[in-house]
């Protein structure tokens, strides 16, 4: 019996130094693996997104000649203009040269007035970012708040009311919510302006009063999805075996919730933010039209109608870039929160 007592010789006496080195190695390996996972998910998205964006311009068949020279242009003049814009080069040469410029912050010049698109966009971007940012904030605050309420009062009437509420607001499109908000808060109650934008420098109250309705219109979908994911995530996490394990080790319910359940349970809610962000950006096109904000969404649709290809491409590629950066942040947070979660990309 005693003979069976000593299993595989313990390596207790092993040099501590070795162990330290391998601990550092472990951390490095893990970090590199996480970075690798995130980048292999995001880089193809950026490359394909930008390729798609550029192709859109190419297959549209639009040229600066169409915009600048009008109907009566001579073939020679068209050819000269194409050459001037570099449009006679092979497609992939054009694409990579454009991509290189984009990555250095040069988005090309508008076909309509030859102005650098980055200049045209700079002042507008702040409007769209204000709206999307406030909408994201609303989505996070109210999504987590409502979701937490649903979890706290799980399977009571509160939970059921929240479920009905979230599934209703999740299908309300921003442009309908926007019109209803104007109807109620601007026309009927006269509490808030129905249109326009004030920069932050004009005062926080003024800025907020102009941006809050568009932001609310944009945020509904995010609020609903964050709340639902939080509810499901926490409920799932609290059913896991490691919760039983922690309880059996004698940890209090409060500690088990805050240390063990919360961390794993909010993962899905954080992950859904990465998926919702494109909607917040894309929705700008409609909310800016409703609230007459001259942001980048309006710029995109007006440029697209005019056929100003470089301007449209700039907006599209910037939106792809923003999505990729935002998802990078989300993935880093997720990787820190739940190291085992293999990054599923976007």
């Amino acid at each position: 019996m005693t003979a069976t007592l000593t299993p595989a010789a313990p390596a207790a006496g092993r040099a501590k130094k070795d162990s330290r080195v391998s601990v550092v190695g472990l951390r490095m390996r893990r970090l590199l693996a996480a970075i690798g996972r995130i980048l292999t998910a995001l880089i193809p998205v950026f490359l394909l997104g930008s390729l798609f964006t550029y192709m859109l311009g190419a297959i549209s068949g639009l040229t600066p000649a169409y915009l600048q020279l009008g109907e009566g242009a001579t073939p020679a003049a068209i050819k000269a203009l194409d050459q001037q814009w570099g449009l006679n080069r092979p497609f992939f040469v054009q694409y990579f040269s454009w991509l290189g410029h984009v990555l250095t912050g040069n988005f090309g010049n508008s076909w309509v007035n030859n102005f650098p698109v980055s200049q045209l966009l700079a002042s507008r971007a702040i409007i769209s970012i204000s709206a999307a940012g406030v909408a994201l904030l609303l989505g996070v605050v109210f999504g987590f708040g409502i979701g937490a309420l649903a979890v706290r009062f799980q399977s009571t009437w509160v939970d059921r009311v929240i479920t009905v509420f979230t599934s209703t607001i999740s299908v309300l499109p921003p442009f309908i919510v926007g019109i209803l908000l104007i109807d109620v808060f601007a026309v009927w109650l006269r509490w808030l302006p129905s249109s326009g934008f004030m920069p932050l420098s004009a005062g926080f109250g003024s800025w907020l009063s102009h941006i809050i309705l568009p932001a609310i219109a944009l945020s509904f979908d995010t609020i609903a999805d964050v709340a639902r994911q939080l509810r499901v995530g926490l409920a799932t996490a609290s059913r896991q075996n490691y919760v039983t394990g922690a309880i059996v080790r004698g940890l209090s319910g409060r500690r088990v919730f805050f240390v063990h359940v919360l961390r794993n349970g909010i993962g899905p809610a954080v992950a859904i933010l990465g998926l919702k962000f494109p909607n917040l950006l894309g929705g700008a096109v409609v909310t800016e039209a409703i609230f007459q904000l001259s942001g980048y969404g309006q710029f995109a649709s007006q440029s697209a109608i005019k056929g100003d290809v470089p301007a449209v491409q700039a907006v599209l590629v910037i939106s792809v870039l923003l999505v990729v950066i935002f998802n990078l942040v989300v993935n880093v947070i997720l990787a820190r929160l739940i190291p085992s979660s293999a990054s599923r990309g976007l």
Binding site: F52, P278, L281, G282, A300, S319, V323
Partner: peptide
């Protein structure tokens, strides 16, 4: 993956 990540309405 890319199509899902695109800001839908702007692209539409």
């Amino acid at each position: 993956d890319t199509l899902i990540a695109l800001p839908f309405l702007v692209f539409a």
